[in-house]
Design a protein around this nucleic acid. Structure first.
Lengths: 345, 345
DNA sequence: CTCAAATGCGCAATCGTTTACACATTTTTA
DNA sequence: TAAAAATGTGTAAACGATTGCGCATTTGAG
């Protein structure tokens, strides 16, 4: 332990050979004899050799680092995706760099540039809410780096995407409500400029249509994903002449707001009003009543995005894949009139 | 856009100068004239130059990448810390690589090695539950890389640490309960092998002592951070001859378990039993009743860890710092008998 | 027995920057 | 006014690995 870092050159010197042989041996090159390999590995071990992946990456022009860009790293959905990605790519010897866009396009652009400068193998990204131009991402593609979008995707780019089937998630939620006897179902939408919310809206409409229920414009409201906003909107909804008897919310938080307002105003859930949220945020399972919600499969989405990424980066597959994961409707107390019997015992 | 990446050599060639001048100009070296700098920047812009930070790092022997190791990236506390770190170090041009130990020492060791191979500037880590030997971290120090521990720290290493004052968090929680009229306060501890839980225990004991309350051994229980376990333990507690009238839990999840069990068994909270949790997990504010809890200041801890790290990495400060952040007791309904009047209106 | 293929390894260039050192010119100091 | 300091730039050697090419030697086929 002289403090000096040992390189392949030191190993070579000790073994009276050259760095190229050592490099090849360490990389298990078939042209190197087993005997030499053994010696090299032994000496590497003995000298406490640790590879410098930067040097290798510089030479190879590609690193084993994947850039991830998300709006916020501490939102449960995104942190789950990050976990899923890391877990998956680690197996193949990759590491992940995390960047946050804070929903700002400028940050997203800066992040992309920083990641390219760091010579990442590619980028896995969920677009910021603001993102509507794609030059920064086209640059990624032009540089021949792998690019995978997840959740917040776009069709403007010819690249691989992984998302859940928001349409289906909404469709089955609304169908589930209908099957539980609800007929006047309100819809809390997110910002309809964002594709996922448009899809959820489509699913909502289709479910109504397939069950021969009318579309009531007053029941369709754009609500930010926020508890207080949920309360406000619910108050308005419940002052309509014909009140809805269920709410399907694009967000667990506005669903929570609705729940709180309803309980405070002596509505019973699910008896008077049924509720289904979206996101399956952990809190939904702890509330009283527990709230049904569509699970977005964060970790699974991360794993899938990682797999698609690896497939592409290793050149096994050059055509782009659009993967739609099936969301899972987690049925809890807030939407199941039938289960009342079970609950009361 | 010939597809070829432009390097400082291209810029130099265009300008009839050399790469060294370009490099210096781009790095704002004072020995380069303003005139030359202008030309260089203009040409860099024109050619769409983008630096290769890897090459620079290789040459300099140090990168602008910081390794972060946490048990799980999707736990709200850790993801908050990650967010705080990223937010802070980005300002200084650093990026963060995330690794997960999954509470396993082998993974932690592998992660450390991978990060060192990637030539990170240093590592910010929260130890896995299993970690009780520290050779892997000593190696980091030996290699002259900055090392900062947070939350799950150890005294076995001469390095900077950032944590919250768990003692104080527990002390003020228990004091708060006492001030609200509770006298028989049970304590849910985590694994006492882990320093943070020992500290919380110390705080609990000190608060009792300072208020002349007796320590009842039956009230002190080790509980995994888990809803079901919380229920089980509460059931046992409430079957004691002398039942406690409050619970201070080292974990929000076991506090939640306790709450659920108590409500199901017709205890009133906070009238019959007071409850304070630890962690201030988001769900605590959504429950009915809302649960008081000690906020662990994840994002702030991340920011602080980042600042300590930067201070050290820039060599501004070579002595190690031990920072203790003050936790904040968030007082909610579950522990405030006094507020009952307000609630009922 | 001969020649082609296979095997095993060394040479040296390369990836894109940074930086110690050198050198020439200009400015300042005493 | 000569020496010292400051200014501006070029030369070339790193940083630590990978890899195309080439040269022996060994093996195998015919």
């Amino acid at each position: 332990m002289k403090g000096k870092k040992t390189t392949i050159h030191e190993i070579a010197k000790e073994l009276n050979t050259t760095a190229s042989t050592v490099s090849r041996a360490l990389n298990n090159n078939p042209r190197i004899s087993e005997e030499t390999k053994k010696k090299v590995f032994a000496m590497a071990e003995k000298l406490g050799y640790e590879p410098n992946t930067m040097a290798a990456s510089l030479r190879k022009g590609r690193s084993q680092i994947i850039g991830i860009i998300v709006p916020y790293a501490d939102r449960i959905f995104f942190s789950s995706v990050i976990r899923g990605i890391e877990e998956e790519v680690k197996k193949s010897g990759y590491n992940v760099i995390i960047c946050q866009s804070y929903e700002k396009i400028e940050n997203e652009i800066d992040d992309v540039n920083a990641l390219l400068s760091a010579q990442v193998a590619g980028i896995i990204i969920s677009l910021s809410r603001e993102t509507s131009t794609y030059e920064h991402l086209k640059k990624v593609i032009q540089k021949n780096k792998t690019l995978v979008l997840f959740d917040r995707t776009t069709d403007a780019l010819n690249t691989s995407c992984v998302a859940i089937d928001d349409y289906q998630g909404a469709y089955s939620s609304v169908s589930h409500l209908i099957e539980n006897g609800y007929k006047k179902i309100a819809f809390f939408s997110g910002n309809k400029k964002v594709s996922i919310f448009r899809e959820r809206f489509r699913g909502y409409l289709a479910a109504l249509k397939d069950h021969d229920l009318p579309v009531v414009d007053d029941y369709i409201i754009e609500v930010p994903s926020d508890v207080e906003q949920g309360k406000l909107v619910t108050e308005k909804l419940m002052s309509l002449a014909v009140k809805p008897d269920a709410i399907f919310s694009s967000s667990d938080f506005s669903a929570l707001g609705a729940t709180k307002w309803l309980l405070q105003n002596n509505y019973r859930i699910p008896e008077d009003i049924g509720i289904v949220g979206f996101g399956n945020d952990p809190f939904t399972q702890y509330l009283e009543p527990t709230i049904s919600s569509v699970d977005q499969k964060g970790k699974e989405m991360g794993k899938t995005a990682a797999q698609v990424f690896l497939e592409q980066v290793e050149g096994r597959n050059s055509i782009h894949r659009k993967v739609l994961l099936s969301p899972e409707l987690i049925i809890r107390e807030s939407s199941t009139k039938r289960s009342i019997n079970k609950m009361v015992i």
